[in-house]
Amino acid sequence: MKWDLFFQLLVNGLIVGMLYGVVAMCFVLIYKSTQVVNFAQGEFLVLGAWVCLALVTNMQLPFFLAFIFTLIFMVAFGIIVQTVILRPLIGEPIISVIMVTIGLSIFMQALMNWIFGNDAKRFPDVFGTTDVVNIAGLNVEVAYLLSLVLSIVIMGVFFWFFRFTRHGLAMRATAFDQQIAQSLGISVKQTFAMAWAISAMVSGVAGIVIGIVNSVSNSLAFVGIKVFPAVILGGLDSIVGAVVGGIIVGVLENLAEFVDGQYLQFGNLYTIAPFYVLIIILMIKPYGLFGTKDIERI
C-alpha cells in the first residue's frame, strides 16, 4: 500500500470533484428551475474555455478582460439557447426536451471542432500555474489550488444569490411552483432565461478553470457526462446534493484509479467506475441522497 500515492490521489479527487460539483450545480440549476435536462452542459463548458482562449491568444487581450468578455458571451449564449430552442418546447413530452439538448450538444461539438480545431491547446501561463507547492508533504499544483478556491467562491456566490437576492428568491419560487410564482408577479420567462444564463456563465468559468489546469480540447465535454453520476448520486433537484455528488464522484474516480493501478491492473477503470455506481444507486435509491421523492397521484 502506497499511502503517499493514496493521499495524493485523494486530494486530486477532492479538487477535481469540486469542479464536477460546480458543473453539476449548473446542471441542477437548469433542471430545478426549468425541468430541462441539459445534455449539452459539457459543451457549454468547452465553449467557455475556447472563447476565453481565443480572446487571450488571438486577440491578445489580457486574461482578466478576456475572462469578463467570456462571461458576457456565455450569458448571451445561454439566453439565446433558452429563447430560441427551449422555449418552443415548454410543455412537450420529456423525450423531446432531452433530445433537443442532445441535438444541441452534437451540433455544438461539430461546430467547435470545426472552428477551434481538434488539438488540445494550452492557456498561456497566466498565474504561474506550473508551480508546485508542498502542503503537509503532498505536492499540489498551484492551478489545482486556484481551481479549488474558485470552486468554493462560485459555491459561495450561488448560496448568497439564492438565499439573499430578489432574483434568487424568484428563481426558488419558480422552481417550487411555476403557476404560483407567476400569479405572484414573477416573470417565469425571465426566470427561465436567467437560469440558463447563469448556468452557461458558471459552466464557462468552470471550463476556463479546467482549461487552465489541463489544457483546452473538445474532450473536456466528457465532464458534462461525468456530471450525470454526480447529480444522480446527489439527487437531481438538490444543489447541495450536486456538490456532494460531484466530490464523491471525483474522489471515487481517483480511488478507482488507485485500486486499479495497485491491485487490479484493469486499465482505464476510473473512467467507467462512476457509471457502475450510478446504476447501483438508481437501483437502490433512485432519488439520490438529497433529492425530493416524487409522490404521484392518479
Binding site: I85, L89, M99, V100, G103, I106, F107, Q109, L111, W114
Partner: peptide, 17 residues
C-alpha cells in the same frame, strides 16, 4: 465532416421545434 454532424444535430432540433 463537421457539417455532416451538425446537420444531424440541426435536423433533430428543427424537427422537434
Amino acid at each position: 465532416s463537421y457539417v455532416k454532424q451538425m446537420s444531424i444535430g440541426a435536423a433533430i432540433i428543427l424537427f422537434l421545434i
